[in-house]
């Protein structure tokens, strides 16, 4: 592995959590997010010669991601797109501003998820492994869609608290 590849790999590895979360915030659909994330990774590599190492890498990579999201949004002009370029810009800046320590704290998530039991684990599986929306989950579990949405909301709140060390997920 040459020095350039080592450097871009190291920088991208550190930036990827922020870029991925930014894409999720705008695109929402995880499969589309994965596609765009790969495109961003390729663009980062191929533009790396233009990166000024004196400047922070994450905002630079986020600029590339923002452009790719712009392309994605324009491709959906005929569909209902709720976030305009100002909203996308605001989110890109916000994700770049979150301190690295907050991203690192997410490493605790595996331990918090491992402690989930019963219905909470099932909800996690259906939402995040099977990629189902609340209405589809509700149909599987014989629940109301609104109840599933609320349960997912509470589940994520518990996991956030667990990550922050404030509480254990039940």
């Amino acid at each position: 592995m040459d020095d350039r590849l080592r450097q871009v790999t190291r920088e991208w590895t550190l930036a990827q959590p922020a870029v991925a979360a930014f894409l999720t915030a705008v695109v929402r659909d995880f499969r589309e997010r994965d596609d765009i994330l790969q495109e961003v990774a390729v663009a980062v590599l191929e533009s790396f010669d233009r990166y000024d190492p004196a400047r922070p890498f994450i905002p630079w990579a986020m600029g590339i991601a923002r452009n790719r999201v712009g392309v994605w949004l324009r491709g959906r002009k005929r569909e209902r797109v709720r976030f305009d370029s100002d909203a996308v810009e605001g989110l890109a800046v916000a994700f770049a501003e979150i301190p690295a320590a907050e991203y690192r704290r997410l490493d605790r998530l595996a331990e918090c998820v491992a402690r989930l039991e019963g219905r909470a684990r099932e909800l996690c599986r259906l939402r995040y492994v099977d990629d189902l929306k609340p209405a589809a989950i509700a149909a599987r579990l014989g629940m109301q869609a609104n109840s599933v949405a609320k349960a997912l909301e509470r589940l994520r709140a518990r996991l956030r608290a667990c990550i922050e060390g404030e509480a254990e997920p039940a």
């Binding site: 976030f83 100002d86 909203a87 916000a94 996690c124 995040y128």
Partner: peptide
């Protein structure tokens, strides 16, 4: 939501923090 995030940097930051667990959950579980 789009308007608030566009106009208010604090709202954008709050939304960003709200997305983090959701985003990581999917990758972790898969």
């Amino acid at each position: 939501l789009g308007r608030r995030v566009a106009r208010d940097p604090d709202a954008a930051l709050r939304m960003a923090r709200g997305v983090l667990v959701h985003d990581r959950l999917r990758d972790l579980l898969r």
